[in-house]
């Protein structure tokens, strides 16, 4: 059901540019206005989310620890699993963000007869890293459409990426890897009953959307060739804030690709995809485990109004004496001071 709903939404997203450009001829709306709008939403939406998270207090120190805490000098402590200084936290975050270290530790629970056993399950890590790193390389490669004087690093990445020279234009390795990664991540949700039970439309939709973006891109590179020069005129115009529709024919597939990318950008800050910045704000990851060294002040704490016994006694002294309740003179002295 969740999958069908996502598929329907995706079909509508593909139909919009088909109708808008193919039937209504709103070329500049889809080529210029919507991309700008989508990227404005992406930028401001993400900054809004970042500030929203930055304003939320972290009342307790809840760092995840899976190793020896730093304590006595002769006990070796685990720097990454139980970071004690901010430098160690930076290291841990680096491995988390670039290598998905916590996914690498992923376990899978299963029954061995009647016995519950836990085994290491690296497939999720592999699928995730294939997808994410390929996406990064693909994004860097796309700079060739937006920049006139292309940095040599982009040229080198493209050359290495098409190293095998299969077909003409040569196929990019990352194009295959991203499809493998995404395909695995999608299959995992469909095949594994436990993960399937946990999957909502908001899990399927981003996967399907990114798969369609990758597929339209690969189609355009290998089979249904667009006029690349016209595309560069458009994208270069967009990047230099000098947008104009090129004279050449931008193919329908390109409009679909562009609209899906715009949808992804606009959807990004308000979906699970925002884990891109969320990972930096995970209190279980970004706090040092130094409870014994420095006190964590709860930012929610405010000065509480309280009355000491001495003040209370002073206030009700007359009534207490009348009732014969003994007055604590030691406390009274404190109050008078």
């Amino acid at each position: 059901m969740n999958l069908i709903f996502s598929l329907i939404v995706l079909a509508i997203l593909i139909l919009i540019p088909l109708m808008g450009v193919g039937v209504l001829g709103l070329n500049s709306l889809f080529a210029i206005f919507i991309p700008y709008l989508a990227f404005a939403i992406f930028f401001f939406g993400l900054i809004y989310r970042i500030i929203g998270w930055a304003r939320s207090p972290q009342p307790y120190k809840i760092t995840t620890t899976c190793g020896q805490q730093k304590s006595l000098s002769w006990i070796k402590h685990s720097r990454l699993e139980s970071p004690a200084s901010s430098w160690e936290v930076y290291l841990r975050m680096f491995f988390e963000v670039f290598l998905f270290r916590s996914l690498f530790r992923n376990l899978r629970a299963d029954f061995d007869g009647k016995r519950l056993i836990y085994g290491s399950a690296k497939w999720l890590w592999l699928g995730a890293i294939l997808f994410h790193l390929s996406f990064l390389v693909i994004m860097i490669r796309h700079l060739r459409f937006f920049v006139n004087d292309i940095p040599s690093i982009v040229q080198k990445i493209s050359a290495v990426d098409s190293f095998f020279q299969l077909g003409l234009p040569p196929i990019y390795i990352t194009n295959l890897l991203i499809l493998a990664g995404l395909g695995f991540l999608l299959l995992r949700r469909l095949v594994d009953a436990k993960v399937n039970y946990l999957s909502y439309a908001s899990d399927y939709f981003p996967l399907l959307l990114i798969i369609s973006i990758a597929l339209t891109g690969i189609l355009m590179r290998l089979y249904v060739k667009p006029d690349l020069y016209a595309i560069k005129q458009l994208t270069y115009g967009l990047a230099t804030f000098n947008p104009a529709l090129p004279k050449g024919n931008l193919s329908m597939l390109f409009y679909i690709h562009l609209f899906l990318v715009s949808s992804l950008a606009a959807y990004f800050p308000f979906s699970k995809l925002v884990h891109m910045v969320g990972v930096f704000f995970s209190p279980t990851r970004n706090m040092p485990n130094d409870n014994r060294m420095s006190r964590h002040i709860n930012p929610w704490e405010y000065p509480v109004k309280y009355v000491t016994y001495a003040e209370w006694q002073e206030k009700f002294r007359d009534v207490m004496e009348e009732a014969g309740i003994p007055i604590d003179e030691e406390w009274a002295n404190v109050a008078q001071k």
Binding site: L143, V147, N148, D149, A239, T240
Partner: peptide, 15 residues
Amino acid sequence: FAMPFWLNFGKVEAL
């Protein structure tokens, strides 16, 4: 994410 914008900064010319 604004790399496409600032990489072109100051050297915008016709393709």
